[in-house]
């Protein structure tokens, strides 16, 4: 549960602690985190463009890229050592960002295509 003490989750936990006994509060906090993770953020690829080009997400968020072009793309995030499989039309790739920071990424096939995931704590 250590990671629940990170900034960003703190406010929610505080509210829960005020309202509920500690054990229940932690349980709800865990559920809240799951709900947050399930609420994935989607980045689409149309016309060789990542959209939105910059997204800001809380850590623990899974970002899913969906290729809607009729040419393959792939997602490369060097700073977190991630390289997706090649994404043909309508294929997608998901990655969960657990560490706060700014992650620049690009298309491994068409590197002029770039985007940013800003992961908050």
């Amino acid at each position: 549960m250590t990671e629940l003490l990170e900034p960003g989750v703190f406010a929610r936990r505080t509210v829960l602690r005020l309202a509920l006994p500690a054990a229940g509060g932690l349980l709800l906090a865990a559920r809240a985190t799951q709900a947050q993770a399930a609420d994935d953020v989607k980045v689409t690829i149309d016309n060789f463009v990542f959209a939105p080009a910059t997204i800001t997400v809380p850590k623990g968020t899974t970002v899913t890229w969906v290729n809607r072009d009729d040419i393959p793309h792939l997602v490369v995030c060097p700073s977190v050592n991630v390289r997706s499989k090649v994404l043909d039309t309508d294929q997608s790739f998901a990655f969960r960002f657990d560490k706060p920071g700014r992650v620049n990424y690009f298309c491994g096939l068409h590197p002029h295509m770039t985007g940013v995931v800003v992961v908050t704590g």
Binding site: V76, P78, N104, Y105, F106, G108, P111, H112, T114
Partner: peptide, 11 residues
């Protein structure tokens, strides 16, 4: 070969 080790934002 100019298609290997491509850099973001590059060619």
């Amino acid at each position: 070969v100019n298609v290997v080790d491509l850099k973001g934002g590059g060619m």
